[in-house]
Amino acid sequence: MNEHEHAHDSHGDHGDLPRYNHPVSVKLLLTVFFCLVGLTILTVVVNGFGLGQLDIWAALLIASVKAAIVCLFFMHMFWEKGFNIIAFISSLFFVTLFIGLTLMDTRAYRDSQDKFPLDKRPEPTVVRDANS
């Protein structure tokens, strides 16, 4: 097969490619992958420290960094058209809006629901007898 003739590094010029075609170099892909693996290990390690309240924020921060590099390099956002980036990022704005306002509200009436009498809670439906 003749493909390997074309497997030149993307640092080389791609003058023969259409202008919307931006191949990412293999080196960059591998770098990104090992960064992602490193961050995954990091998040498990950080979780082991037992930072208490900060735990969740640390985990989310690391997850967001991972998400950002996946978006930028694997999903080619780095080279993407402005409009497409705005379209995708705007979804996060609406998600924030949705979750934010909903949470703001439930905090206000939650007390009344926490008073739900626990002994009125229905018995669990048994799928398999635990004691057999």
């Binding site: 493909e3 074309h6 497997a7 490619l17 293999v26 892909l29 995954t40 290990i41 694997f74 080619h76």
Partner: peptide
Amino acid sequence: GGINTIVLLFSSLTMAWAVRAAQLGQNRF
């Protein structure tokens, strides 16, 4: 959970690489 995370990340790598290959017209790869 961690293993699965790595598996998915690896699949993302191969996917991104496949896109590169397709961009260069290397269908077999």
